[in-house]
Design a protein around this nucleic acid. Structure first.
Length: 803
DNA sequence: AGCACGCCGACT
DNA sequence: GTCGGCGTGCTC
């Protein structure tokens, strides 16, 4: 007897364990752990993953069922990943199935459809149902749902005229193109040539050519142009058996352009020293985590590239993570130009099919290097030699929904499995990582000087309160206007940075002060000029701009705040001659628009690049000599303990965009609070003093890295129930956790209502609490077995990226 | 989660 | 007597 343990594709608490299935005879040779299978589960069919193969089972014979289909001949998950999923499950408190799914491209996930099949003759069906089965005996269930025919359908099912079947489909497919394969035997071709009509001159010509290419495979079009024949001629030859159409699997090409090959650059002593330590750990198979702290422009990427080169020499693979796709074009170009065809990319900008193809290149061993966003940390290599996280401090490395994993933790776990190094690179490391480096948990590598010996840009901080006193009410200070003007005259480029969060434009009534709010969420709607609409950034709700105030009917209603659109308008008013490129969520909606805008700017098609945080990092153009930060305060006053850290990082990052090449750079930071340490120290680009200062603050307030955090969120449509269960949660935690743990809350979340649900949260701070995970599991059990029925939604996020 | 089953009130 | 509403329980 052969039995498979299967984790089925159902995210629910009582299902979160393996189920045993008998393996049918015909699958026994092929099946392996990590394969996907189709299984009957209760009344339906679902997809599942084989996690174990064994010879016995405890399940009584009358209960056990058999696998219905094997979906993979080669497993899609390695045994490493099955182990990793178990770890993720306990580490982030998620369902095992969610942990497994997150490692695969969405193309491999199941799509469930219900299908209605005919059991009798069409004529015997009720008249109303007959039209559906005129052409086919199987019809999609949705068709009946749409027409409101479910009653009639149900009756026909009862009468055994129809059956409803659950079918499982794969979401994405391998792209195939039709090619032409020339017959392998020259004799056959000769025979055909002898048999065809003497008048068929084109066919003879084609056959002659084919005899020089026996057994080869060509694109249809290539044959036609090469032999100067038409498709009709080829068709005839194919009918005689001279060639055949074949389907060939192809990879979709996510790279829009070619890149030039580059070779290793000479390293500075600092870089060389860092590289030595990393390669030492690759060669000696040591799982060691390095924190590569290098100021902007110090050439971290070159160190990555050469470390990867070492890796490839050792016959191993490399996984490189970058925070966002905005970074990817320039970053991936650098990797592709060094490693060419050996690079796969993985980011959210790719289509489902493209992601699947990139994944397959990795899975099939066609590539050795992957450059990608967070989920690329699961790239299915089998012999990884290095993990690299660039811009290690970025919060995008933490997934916000289940499984709530941090890419850094996964990388470190995998590096222990492969006995290889992890490189965390940043100009402004997260406090957590820097603290670990100081405690020698990570090995600190420092790059203090810029690779091309350029000086750091001069940074000026402008106190906007003085501007206001002097009667300047615009969003541009006098010094910024002056700086822009001189750059325009000198034909140099500049970047203007606007942190949109919290300050996007809203619509307010000047008489009663009412701000137009979202119907579903307690948040003001954002004004979008492009389509004259108000939009909610949380739930996507849209409405037209009202002509009169909804509260007091006054028509003194108008726009406030500074969105990028408004800045652009003012900018063109002040400098009509300047060419401005705007980069924000609106202008980068379509695929590839990111690259287009950056490329246009790189080619000098504009003087000013204006954008939100997405332009803060990565871009590296020689002609940028001015960076302006319109309002440094916005991120400083967010209700989050990391706001100072975030602001410091952001300012340092944007400042690093200026003067990266020959021309010296200047940075102008506008703020209402110039005395804040995050701004003062960012001005001087002083990481360590900032670190010391911020660590002291964290120590005082009991935040990471001194304490660990866990965030429990509770929401319900009814505010009373939400608050009641939030209190219950806190009571439960208080009675189960020790006194060393501080439990803060319940408090209403900063945006108290989202999508018509009232949100509460409580924050848990702890140092060591062996009981913690178990207590959360108990809390979740309580929630899943009881509270969930009342409509409560509860989530636990260990080490949240923001609160 | 998603589905069947079964109990109960409303309506032909 | 039948239909369909929703609470309950199970899934190898």
């Amino acid at each position: 007897m052969k039995v498979a343990e299967v984790i089925v594709d159902v995210s629910a608490y009582p299902i979160d364990r393996p189920f045993d299935y008998l393996i049918p005879e015909e699958m026994q040779e092929l099946i392996e752990m990590g394969c996907r299978v189709k299984v009957p589960f209760g009344p339906r069919n679902v997809l599942g993953f084989v996690t174990e193969i064994k010879d016995t089972t405890e399940v009584p014979v009358d209960k056990i069922k058999s696998l219905s289909q094997l979906l993979d001949i080669t497993p899609v998950l390695t045994t490493e990943m099955l182990k990793l999923a178990k770890w993720l499950k306990t580490e982030t408190i998620c369902y095992e199935i969610d942990a497994l799914q997150v490692m695969l491209p969405s193309a491999l996930r199941a799509k469930y459809e219900k299908q209605v099949s005919l059991l009798t003759d069409v004529e015997q069906l009720p008249i109303l149902l007959q039209p559906y089965f005129q052409r086919a005996t199987k019809v999609n269930y949705k068709a009946f749902e749409k027409d409101g025919m479910l009653h009639d359908l149900k009756r026909a099912v009862k009468d055994k005229q129809l059956v409803i079947e659950n079918i499982v489909k794969q979401k994405g497919n391998i792209k195939e193109i039709r090619k032409v394969k020339i017959n392998e035997s020259i004799e056959t071709l000769q025979k055909i040539l002898g048999n065809i009509s003497k008048r068929a001159r084109k066919q003879q010509q084609l056959l002659q050519w084919m005899m020089n290419h026996v057994g080869e495979v060509f694109d249809l079009q290539d044959i036609l142009t090469d032999t100067n024949t038409s498709q009709a001629v080829l068709q005839a030859v194919i009918e005689y058996g001279g060639a055949e159409f074949v389907q060939e699997e192809v990879y979709r090409d996510p790279f829009s352009k070619e890149v030039k090959k580059t070779i290793s650059l000479n390293l500075t002593d600092e870089q060389e020293n860092a590289l030595q330590k990393i390669t030492n750990s690759i060669k000696n198979r040591i799982s060691e985590t390095f924190l590569l702290h290098g100021i902007t422009g110090s050439g971290k990427t070159e160190v990555y590239l050469q470390a990867i080169e070492q890796c490839l020499l050792e016959g191993k693979e490399a996984i490189v993570l970058v925070p966002e796709i905005s970074l990817t074009p320039q970053m991936t170009d650098r990797f592709r130009s060094r490693f060419g065809e050996l690079v796969a990319v993985m980011h959210s900008g790719l289509s489902v099919g493209e992601k699947y193809d990139e994944w397959r290149k990795i899975h099939e061993g066609k590539v050795k290097v992957v450059v990608g966003a967070r989920s690329a940390v699961f790239a299915p290599f089998r012999n990884v030699g290095i993990f690299i996280l660039d811009e290690e401090h970025e919060s995008t490395y933490k997934q916000e929904d289940a499984p709530r994993y941090h890419a850094r933790d996964v990388a470190i776990w995998r590096s222990e499995y492969y006995q290889c190094p992890v490189i965390l690179g940043s100009a402004t490391p997260s406090l957590e990582s820097f603290a670990r480096a100081k405690k020698n948990v990570y090995t600190l590598l420092t790059l203090k000087e810029r690779a091309l010996k350029q000086s750091l840009p001069t940074v000026h901080v402008v106190d906007m309160r003085n501007e206001l006193k002097n009667g300047n009410r615009s969003m541009f200070s006098e010094s910024l206007v002056e700086a822009i003007r001189t750059r325009l005259e000198k034909k140099e480029q500049m970047v203007l940075f606007l942190n949109r969060r919290g300050y996007s434009s809203f619509v307010m009534c000047r008489d009663c002060g009412t701000v137009v709010q979202c119907e579903n969420c307690d948040i003001s709607l954002t004004y979008h000029r492009s389509n004259e609409k108000l939009k909610c950034h949380y739930c996507g709700y849209e409405q037209r701009v009202p002509k009169t105030c909804p509260q007091c009917q006054s028509d003194h209603i108008r726009y406030f705040g500074t969105g990028t659109q408004k800045v652009e308008e003012e900018l063109t008013k002040l400098f009509p001659e300047a060419k401005v490129l705007r980069m924000d969520v609106d202008t980068t909606k379509t695929k590839g628009s990111h690259e287009e805008i950056l490329e246009a700017f790189g080619k000098g098609h504009a003087d000013i690049l204006l954008g939100t945080q997405m332009i803060a990092k990565g871009l590296d153009f020689p002609n940028i000599t001015l960076v302006g930060v319109l309002s440094a305060d916005t991120s400083l006053h967010l209700p989050d303990f990391r706001s100072a850290e975030k602001t410091f990082q952001l300012l340092t990052q944007v400042s690093g965009r200026a003067g990266r090449h020959q021309l010296p750079g200047e940075v102008i930071i506008q703020t209402y609070t110039p005395e804040h340490y995050a701004i003062e120290l960012a001005k001087e680009q002083q990481y360590e003093p900032f670190y010391e200062r911020e660590m002291w603050m964290r120590h005082q307030a009991g935040y990471p890295p001194y304490y660990y955090l866990a965030l429990v969120q509770i929401s319900h449509e009814d505010i009373m129930l939400a608050s009641e269960y939030a209190q219950k949660t806190v009571d439960f935690l208080r009675s189960n956790l020790s006194f060393n743990v501080s439990i803060i809350g319940p408090t209403a979340s900063s945006i108290s209502r989202v999508q018509n649900r009232y949100r509460y949260q409580c924050l848990i701070k702890y140092k060591v609490e062996p009981n913690l995970i178990e207590t959360f599991i108990q809390l979740i059990k309580l929630y899943r077995s009881d509270w969930i029925k009342k409509g409560i939604l509860l989530t636990v996020d260990l080490n949240p990226s923001s609160i």
